[in-house]
Amino acid sequence: MQVNGEFKPLIVAFCCNWCSYAGADLAGNNRLNYPAEVKIIRVPCSCRVNPTFILRAFQRGADGVILCGCHPGDCHYTSGNYYTRRRMAMLFSMLDYLGIERERTRVEWVSAAEGAKFAATMNDFVAQVTALGENKRLEDLRCKK
């Protein structure tokens, strides 16, 4: 999206309820700033994120999608994040093949105690996507206003 001639990316962040969503809350509690381009969707576990959700986000004009879950071994549901790791490795490589650069997608492990890591990750990811510019490859033009 262009705002006053400046590119502002649209970032969708899927956060698991137990670690990363709580980590995002902690970033808020500690008033750690990160760009408002990041919009968080709460899911029970990172393994709830269906690849179609990510495809849909890119189709609808998202410029980057980040998935945050518990650290490996710390999943509230014991093994969900291991599935996430494998599924996203597959999906991201397919997206790369379709022309969605690797830098537009990311999986990050953020625990409930890592508010600072959450904010730092989002700052870094937004800067990375901003540098790439708009996502045009997968955007469904029929969805554009």
Binding site: V12, R48, V49, N50, F53, R56, R60
Partner: peptide, 28 residues
């Protein structure tokens, strides 16, 4: 956790409270 909903190839499995169409609606 919803892990099964993603594994299901026919889309038969869904998670109450975090249904596929609910999350897609949020994305949209």
């Amino acid at each position: 956790c919803g892990c099964c909903t993603v594994a299901c190839p026919s889309g038969a499995m869904d998670l109450n409270g975090f249904k596929n169409d609910q999350i897609l609606a949020e994305v949209d």
